[in-house]
Nucleic acid binder design. Sequence first.
RNA 1: GGGCCGUUAGCUCAGGAGGUAGAGCAUCUGCCUUUUAAGCAGAGGGUCGCUGGUUCGAGUCCAGCACGGCUCACCA
Length: 519
Amino acid sequence: MTESTPPTASDIDQIAQRKKKLEQIIALGHSPYPSKFEWTTTASTLLKEYSASTKEQLETQKIPVRLAGRLMTIRGHGKAAFAHLSDGAQRIQIYVRLDSVGEENFKLFQLLDVGDLIGASGYLFRTKTNELTVHVDQLTFLAKAMRPLPEKWHGLTDVEARYRQRYLDLIVNPEVRETFVRRSQIIRFIRDFFDARGYIEVETPMMQPLAGGALARPFVTHHNTLDMDLYLRIAPELYLKRLIVGGLNRVYEINRNFRNEGISTRHNPEFTMLEFYQAYSDYRELMDLTEELLRSVVREIVGGNIVEFDGQSISFEKFDRWTMRGAVVRFWRDSKSPPSVESLQTLEGLQAAAKSHNAAAAATSSPRVEAGPDSSPGQLLGALFEAVAEKELIQPTFIYEFPVELSPLSKRNAEHPAMVDRFELFIAGMEIANAFSELNDPADQKDRFEQQLRMREGGDEEAHQMDEDYIRALSYGMPPTAGEGIGIDRITMLLTNSKSIRDVILFPLMRPEKPAADS
RNA sequence: GGGCCGUUAGCUCAGGAGGUAGAGCAUCUGCCUUUUAAGCAGAGGGUCGCUGGUUCGAGUCCAGCACGGCUCACCA
């Protein structure tokens, strides 16, 4: 089944057969691994360009073609054969007959297996069943598949094998290719979107002496020459804001973040994040921009405003907007007796709400509010929101008015200093985006870092570290700025109807197939 | 980390209430010059994830372990 399991007799048999055939192919005078093939078209091109050409038209035109690809099926008929040649995306049928290709070439064909890579030249025609087909007059051997491909009808369905051997998954499961083509289109569209609005794309360090910009556990590595530990970044945020200080007033970055945390259908240790920052702006403007971005990416990639995801229709036409407190009230499990928005402003009210929620949740399997006795009001509200509302946010919904304790890098709300000007966007119960007006008061930022340090000393490994140079940068003056992060993998999940993040990451992290040999 | 489920031929899957392993595709041999999950006739191919246990006898029952999936927790 896998590289590391010892080959069975059948395995050896199949490989040995193909090895034998390769030797015979060499004996016929072919190079086993030729270096190139001059092709003039592809299966996809032919299928597109000649879909309307009739049998008669093709017969009179006798259009010459020269293409390469992988043999996906072979149907032999003695002195002739049909096969399908794939260019990776599409398959076109080829027809090989002894009296057309000649004896030498037909011998070569008989030594080919499904999976082999060949070049073919000939002309187009339509068969009895009207299938567009290449009538081959010459075959070129390009490379041998020494291992058999998965079964032609069912493909490769074993999830583990699909992730570990993505190349096989891509060869035999066309929808997988489609997913990753679409992922590429999404990212290209997003780049165009920001480029067109005057943002410049930048690259900031992935190896950082301090892992800042988010609350998460980092991976640690070491630079030998400098003899220093470095962290793989958990976010690019603090570097991007340094660029805002430097006068790059609109910047964005699309690249990997690394977080040393759990793996799930929504979390991979490395994942792709879009972050963008704009000077002289606030989080309200970003809500509008986010709506515009997502609505247009959906229109461009999916078409229309509706996305089907996991059996639900998600409309990108109009996004809901709720305060965090409002969402707790709105999605309270017992809609007849929700807490009041006002009660959720006090510690006592929040504790009562958490208690009441947990009492009701105990009877079911719904999530409980996890909070310690010394939890602050902001922590309680955050926990309450997660337990009560987060999973209910199927349609695109902005949640705003976040507690300051949960947001060490966000600007305080002018009227309610316990809250910050921040929002998150939820779709299909997933957190998709996180944005805020950036804290640009260096003194307040220093206080927030110190507050985080106290949490860190209290055992919170995810609390933010002190970043003196970032404080220094802010003290040169940062314009009022708004910034946002959008999870590219999760957007891709939504737009490809993928329920697992591993289906939108080409090579998701897996344990080794065999445990490392300990001596 | 908890719970549930899975691991049998290269691939996709069967194996009732323990009795020494099956199919289709793939492979091999033969036939076949318009097929398309081509067809016909025949053949080979298995450490039943690993290690123990129960039993006269284990793919099947039990325990532990490995890997994976789903889910809960964790995680913004």
